[in-house]
Design a protein around this nucleic acid. Structure first.
Length: 869
RNA sequence: GGGCGCGUAGCUCAGCGGGAGAGCGCUCGCCUCACACGCGAGAGGUCGCAGGUUCAAAUCCUGCCGCGCCCACCA
């Protein structure tokens, strides 16, 4: 068995060996009929267009840690995987591919195009799934779903119809956020505002009666072609007499009225605003209130249409801006131009084009007013818990200001809106394709051309994946789900909507009893950045590809590095290749520790307490501390803390001190000693493997198998606290030995190696050191003797003429440091306020500390004296 | 204009009321029979700045400076 263990761990081999077996043996499959308590996570579905990036890797690692631990703790653990059809993103990708073949989607027609996207999905949509598997994610692949598969599409229809019937979905003609590149409307959440260096141009409209001019300002000059009014604040005395008059449009002679509206800020600019109802959301609202008409001046490409004077018609929006400027200047109407003028401009979250407020025909909206109350309440009253909790407030603030949600998308790829219209324009929403109008019975009906926002189906994910609207056993057993793990950037886009729809829709489901929140906890993690905190992007060339890292360092190395930085308080998580390398080194360290233990014949059996040596008792005590640290950290969702505790225990304690001191017994001890030590180390190691398994599943399985404990570590029991292993006496005794070894090493470090082989220890140390003499000698490479030493603990025989300068300097520096501390602490102990108010144990601790420092200072002085300093 | 997060060793971060820590990098010494993806020893920090609370502040409070993010209809 030992021969099978080369000195370097091979992650690729372990990954290839174990993942398929885990799946095949059904470890990841959950049983809805189980008696075990349920624990369920649904995976935030990656887009089918995607390739796994570090954000996914982090997100999936956290979930796998949670799920694997719960599975080991005896829960019926279910992790539901799946993918998202990602409407715009996917349509754009396929369109681009078609364009490269010289095909325009409009030429091929809707049906053929959609077929083409499906074909593309079949071919590439599976790639991301393979990548999730490569990471080691323990998802139940038998339950894998896709937002456009049959069941989920039915869920979308049922959701739509139920909301419609409740009056929470309506159709209306409104201004929408239009992407002129992707040719679709967007919800407010899909628009990202970015500051740009633009311009603020002030120009004047002459009053129609020739009595003067009114000045207005704009950052988008071209929109003045669609102006249908000028608004001033009704309280603004400067303009009181102007309201009701008209101005003359300089290019087409239209007369447009001056109106009063309270939304106008008197302080800004001239206090008069041009109103372009068809191309600005505020102006739209002003027009609604004041009855101004709207003129749509753009076509779908944001190019000027025929509603504008011919000289401008056909111009692209930015060109038009310049032409309008020139034309106004010619007429002497430009008053001022401020440039650069920094202001926010909305961009499409997919293609970065500037979004155009535009009337895109009738659109469907979700009315949120009734939905948001219960959704806010569920978080406020703690039924849904955010980790870290501060995100609950961000959620609530956002919910408070939430406005109706535009769900119509002028795309072909997605769930087609399940509403049919007859020639009378009656609406027939239906979960099954209807054959006639529900209102007038006409059989001449056509389905709405638009599809639904991708997020409309995503919001159903926690229950649609479990079978909703069918009353499935999965839904009964696993809903509400336990935890939703996601990055903070989609709390609004996604998390909030899942809560609203879960509460409303699942509640409306007569098969449900109990709470209908979609999840009990939301774990929010940060966003992965590069090692300098910058966003990873192709253009910066700082992208670290997780698959590349898995290939070069192993999935465990990547997972460990991610877990180690996943502190929930941190919004930006910097990642470097070096940290992944550190993860690989850690896996290798563990591997080699196991090699030594296994080579020594260790089997994971604990000798009876009375037969344990101090070394063994020390190891078990430290191991117990590690178990507690890991459990406490994981219970608090502190993955970084848990990983750190494991790293420290394995490397610094188990290996650097434990195994190093065990070598004597392992190599040269009696058979009983050898067996007791090897078995104790094997026992602690085997338990540590289980603790580490959720973070590093592959290397732990690979080693665990060699202990021959059963079928798989995946289904092994989780190590819970064993307080009886804590052993203060052993830690104290062992600590004394550590101190002696460290003292010797420090002394040796300043001396040429060949001169540091003969070490003398003070007689005082004999009781502590003698039982460990061979270990101390092994660790220091020195011959150790005892003698009466004046004031010092350790001495080393050096010949005359050896340069002791470096040692002296170090000792002097150390002395200064110790004296400094000593001074501060003595002052503290002399302080009456401290003595009066500090806790007694704090005072006692300070006193002990002073005693120790005092002794240390004495030793250093003595040492300096001996060396002639 | 509001809100949130962050400023601690060269880099990336942990610590969040009583002795300044880790990883990487750097220096020195070691191919010591688990591991050079390793072992040992070091150098390196007025804990952003200024006040305040406290016997005691990197840690709590206030203000300021700097960086990042989110939200908001100021044309």
């Amino acid at each position: 068995m030992v021969e099978e263990m080369p000195s370097q761990y091979d992650p690729a081999a372990a990954q290839a060996r174990w993942y398929p077996q885990w799946v095949e043996r059904g470890y990841f499959g959950a049983d809805a009929g189980s008696d075990k308590p349920p624990f369920c996570i649904v995976l935030p579905p990656p887009n089918i267009t995607g390739r796994l990036h570090m954000g996914h890797a982090l997100n999936h690692t956290i979930q796998d840690i949670l799920i694997r631990r719960k599975r080991m703790q005896g829960y019926e653990a279910l992790w539901v995987p799946g993918t998202d059809h990602a409407g715009i993103a996917t349509q754009v990708v396929v369109e681009r591919a078609l364009r490269e073949e010289g095909i325009d989607r409009r030429e091929m027609g809707r049906e053929a195009f959609v077929e083409r996207v499906w074909a593309w999905k079949e071919r590439f949509g599976g790639e991301i799934v393979e990548q999730v598997k490569a990471l080691g994610a323990s998802c139940d692949w038998s339950r894998e779903r896709f937002t456009m598969d049959e069941g989920l599409s039915q869920a979308v229809r049922v959701a739509f119809v139920r909301l419609y019937e409740a009056g929470l979905i309506y159709r209306g003609e409104r201004l929408v956020n239009w992407c002129p590149t992707d040719h679709t409307g967007l919800s407010d959440s899909e628009v990202e505002h970015e500051d740009v260096d633009g311009e603020l141009v002030t120009f004047k409209y002459p009053l129609a009666d020739g009595s003067g001019d009114i000045e207005v300002a704009t950052t988008r000059l071209e929109t003045m072609l669609g102006d249908t009014g000028i608004a001033v604040n009704p309280k603004d005395e400067r303009y009181a007499s102007w309201v009701g008059k008209t101005v003359r449009h300089p290019f087409d002679d239209r007369e447009i009225p001056i109106v009063a509206d309270e939304s106008v800020d008197m302080e800004f600019g001239t206090g008069a605003v041009k109103v372009t109802p068809a191309h600005d959301p505020n102006d739209w609202e002003i027009a609604e209130r004041t009855g101004l008409p709207h003129i749509n001046i753009f076509d779908a490409n944001a190019t000027l249409n025929d509603e504008v004077p011919q000289e401008f018609s056909g111009l692209e929006r930015y060109v038009a801006r310049e032409r309008v400027r020139e034309a106004l200047a010619e007429k002497g109407l430009i008053v001022a131009e401020e440039r650069p003028y920094r202001h926010a401009v909305g961009h499409c979250y997919r293609c970065r084009s500037e979004v155009e407020p535009w009337i895109a025909g009738k659109q469907w909206f979700v009315a949120v007013d009734e939905l948001k109350g219960p959704a806010r309440e569920a978080v406020k009253d703690g039924r849904i818990r955010f980790t870290p909790p501060r995100w609950a407030r961000a959620y609530d603030t956002w919910m408070e200001g939430l406005r109706d949600w535009n769900i119509s998308r002028q795309l072909w790829w997605g769930h087609r809106i399940p509403v049919w219209y007859c020639p009378e324009q009656h609406e027939t929403p239906a979960t099954q394709d209807p054959t006639a109008c529900a209102e007038c019975g006409s059989t001449d009906i056509v389905q709405d051309e638009d599809v639904l926002d991708t997020w409309f189906s995503s919001q159903l994910w926690p229950f649609s994946t479990l079978g909703w609207p069918e009353a499935t056993q999965d839904l009964k057993s696993f809903y509400p789900t336990s935890v939703m793990v996601t990055a903070y950037d989609i709390i609004y886009l996604w998390v909030a909507r899942m809560i609203m729809s879960g509460l409303f829709l699942v509640d409306g489901d007569e098969t449900r009893t109990g709470d209908t929140i979609p999840f009990e906890q939301v774990v929010i993690h940060g966003i992965v950045r590069d090692e300098h905190g910058r966003k990873m992007s192709k253009s910066l060339g700082n992208v670290i590809d997780p698959l590349d890292m898995i290939e070069r360092y192993g999935a465990d190395a990547l997972r460990f590095s991610l877990a180690r930085m996943a502190s929930p308080d941190q919004q930006n998580l910097p990642q470097s290749e070096a940290s992944i390398e550190a993860g690989r080194n850690f896996a290798n360290k563990l591997w080699n520790a196991a090699r030594l233990v296994l080579r020594s014949g260790g089997v994971p059996e604990l000798p009876p307490a009375e037969h344990r040596s101090v070394l063994e008792r020390w190891l078990l005590s430290r191991h117990q501390a590690c178990v507690d640290a890991v459990n406490d950290a994981l219970d608090a969702d502190e993955y970084a803390e848990a990983s750190q505790a494991l790293y420290r225990f394995v490397w610094s304690e188990f290996c650097d001190w434990g195994l190093e001191l065990a070598k004597g017994r392992l190599y040269e001890g009696t058979d009983e000693e050898k067996a007791a030590t090897a078995n104790t180390f094997a026992w602690a190691l085997e338990r540590t493997l289980r603790l580490l398994h959720p973070v590093m599943p592959f290397v732990t399985e690979e080693i665990w198998q060699r202990f021959g404990r059963g079928d798989s570590i995946v289904v092994a029991a989780w190590p819970e606290s064993a307080p009886e292993l804590a052993d203060e006496d052993a830690e104290r005794e062992f600590g004394a030995v550590q101190d002696i070894v460290t003292d010797i090493r420090q002394l040796q470090a300043g001396i040429p190696t060949e001169l540091s082989k003969n070490v003398t220890l003070a007689e005082d140390l004999r009781p502590a050191a003698e039982p460990w003499l061979s270990e101390v000698q092994r660790l220091t490479g020195a011959e150790v003797a005892f003698a009466q030493l004046e004031g010092v603990r350790v001495d080393v025989r050096i010949s005359d003429g050896t340069d002791v300068g470096p040692i002296l300097r170090r000792l002097e520096k150390k002395l200064a440091e110790v004296d400094g501390k000593l001074g501060r602490k003595r002052a503290k102990l002399a302080n009456e306020g401290f003595l009066a108010k500090a806790l007694p144990e704090v005072i006692a601790k300070e006193q002990r500390s002073v005693d120790e420092l005092d002794e240390e200072a004495g030793r250093i002085r003595a040492q300096l004296g001996r060396l002639g300093g």
